[in-house]
Amino acid sequence: MKKVTIAVLFLLSFLFVFASLDLAPTSDLNSPPSTHVSPRYIEMGYKETGALNMVTAVLADYRGYDTLGETTVIFTAGLACLLIIESRRKPKR
């Protein structure tokens, strides 16, 4: 079982290396993630949101709806934890 797993993962590693050659190299200035929306965030972030920290500007203003979802996920996880542990099993009828 473990030998089969190692063999499959070894083959999978070749797939990963092959796929990584299609990505932009590390610290490339013209990579797709750095040219699509982030120049707008960097140039207009302070003028539009008043936050010098661009991470805060993106987190709370440009993508505020997204962060609302994340907060709801965290709160729901805490509530689920409470319900899973604190619930008692129903007595058998």
Binding site: T49, G50, T56, D61, T67, L68, I74, F75, C81
Partner: peptide, 25 residues
Amino acid sequence: PEVRALGTLGIETGVTLGVAGTFIV
């Protein structure tokens, strides 16, 4: 922009309370 920064501070307070409470529970 200053008004937006104040609104941002408000929701960050909400996030802080939510995360801290969830971790403690």
